[in-house]
Design a protein around this nucleic acid. Sequence first.
DNA 1: GCCAACGTTGGC
DNA 2: GCCAACGTTGGC
Length: 153
Amino acid sequence: MKNKYWLMKCEPSEFSIDDLERAGEYFWDGVRNYQVRNMFRDQMRVGDKAIFYHSSTKDVGAVGEMEIIKQATPDPTQFDSKSKYFDAKSTTANPRWLGPTVSFVKKFNHLVSLEEIKNDSTFSDLALIKRGNRLSVIELSKKQYERLIKLGK
DNA sequence: GCCAACGTTGGC
DNA sequence: GCCAACGTTGGC
């Protein structure tokens, strides 16, 4: 099956591309949005590629490449009452939230800033730059994915 | 820290 | 099922 391409946001104060590089792989936890949950469940598959994007920080933008190495499974933080992602309404029998596992591929040589993305016509219809967008995971076209990698070199 | 925009919750 | 209130997101 054809691989898909994704852009996945995370606040670097929580987890950054450097953290991922050190860890090698990471369970993408903490997503509490149904649309994104459904994307994880129904569309994201092993072998898909993803761009790591730093949000809510001084230097906002795309910072590196990842690969999906495990399809979404229940997010353990939803059952952990000490976690800020705890969800009392979720049960192990019927878990509400999922997360894929990603692996580090490459860190960009330089950040591709949000401004740069906005100014590039390749991304003119990308939800990322649309006003009011709240998705932390967005599907990219192959062209958009390759363009980000080129800009990051 | 502000604030616009959106998603979720819960009373009715 | 409506909708107001509330919480969260995320760029600036």
